[in-house]
Design a protein around this nucleic acid. Structure first.
Lengths: 215, 215
DNA sequence: CTGCATCCGCTTCGATACTG
DNA sequence: CAGTATCGAAGCGGATGCAG
């Protein structure tokens, strides 16, 4: 990206990650290490040459590293460095601000279930969940498995099904799953809930998301 | 901006503020309401047509409002809405991440003293300042007056000189001022300090900034 | 002066085709 | 699968002009 040429902390950050697509690449890599093809499917619409350019630029800036994967995969994996992982706060704040826009639904937008893993922790940031923890929620958003771990001071999200048994299972479209987590009226009817329904309801009641889906 | 077309909270946010310059416009307006010309000087390098475009887009997105200023000014002021002010967290996280880049100095970059008002609170986020508060620091960064108010759980920054007397006065280039606030070795010699030098030193010792300037 | 429109050269983006 | 090459479209930056 063309530098803003300003001696300002925010502008310096945007010099590195302010390019179109750059922060969304970081979003994907925050959830898991990715191959080139994984990034393509997680970033629907990106041109391959742009993805190549961005990966090179972010590698040059020390945000991510190319990593030769062991024999079973036998290809290059892209992985965030510590410096890149430090962008988690930026993505979280963006997601927090953007959640208000999610109420209007997906409309024509592409939906990937794994994006819930970014939004879910954000919707409960600062919430007091001590009375609920420990709690394991197994999500199935648009067919993608995500495990939410409710801890006293927040929620952690990981891709994949939980290793042990889950207290609640919540499945449905991304909109239904998010709405249910936020306790939006009517949302629970759109999703499929199994297990400790009541714990899920108490969790939703403690959401700190700013507006929007909670209607 | 062309929409990413993704039903993801972060992508939805970037649909609104992901354009070049957009977040920097918000940065300026977080510090004060601005006229068109104020924005131009606070955003060195922006083309006037782009500024016009961005202002219209952000107004349409509900991020800012045009506001007819009373007779003494007699022009339009641009002001953030509540929705726009909610972007403070995004700017703060960006600044936090970008502070690490400030160590290499301004090089050829334009410097505006008022940008310190964004960085200063960020450099002490989460710090325990109870032993220091209340403390008022009068900054003069590149000739721009900024008031830092040290409170038990963090620092607030405002443009302009303090209303009452300040405990410490700190003046110098932006690099020197930031370095002194962070306790970078040698930085204090580059800045001019008057008043409670020791309080300033104790403040610097509690900075939570992640690296960089602290050397 | 303020706020904006218009023009132009250049860079970047997006879509698709193609190669190792 | 992991990119590279290409090309038209869109966006950016800078200069200039102009109405209120």
């Amino acid at each position: 990206m063309r530098s803003y040429g300003q001696y300002c902390a925010a502008a310096r950050a945007l010099d590195v990650v302010g390019d179109r697509w750059s922060l969304l690449i970081v979003r994907e890599l925050l959830l898991r290490d990715c191959r080139f093809a994984d990034l393509r499917t997680g970033l629907p619409g990106i041109a391959t040459n742009l993805l190549t350019d961005r990966l090179r630029a972010l590698e040059g800036a020390g945000v991510l590293e190319r990593h030769a994967a062991p024999p079973p995969v036998a290809t290059v994996l892209y992985r965030l460095t510590d410096r890149g992982r430090a962008l988690e706060g930026v993505l979280a704040e963006l997601a927090l601000w953007g959640v208000a826009d999610m109420a209007r639904g997906a409309e024509g937008d592409v939906v990937c279930g794994h994006w819930v893993a970014l939004a879910a922790p954000v919707m409960f940031r600062g919430a007091d969940l001590a009375a609920l923890a420990p709690l394991t929620v197994a999500l199935d958003a648009e067919g993608t498995a995500i495990t939410l771990t409710v801890e006293p001071d927040g929620i952690r999200a990981a891709l994949g099904a939980p290793e042990g048994p889950a207290d609640v299972h919540l499945a449905g479209t991304m909109h239904a799953v998010m709405g249910t987590l936020l306790g939006a009226p009517g949302a629970e009817g759109l999703a499929q809930v199994d297990g400790d329904r009541e714990a899920l309801r108490r969790l939703a009641a403690r959401s700190t998301a700013p507006l929007g889906l909670r209607g």
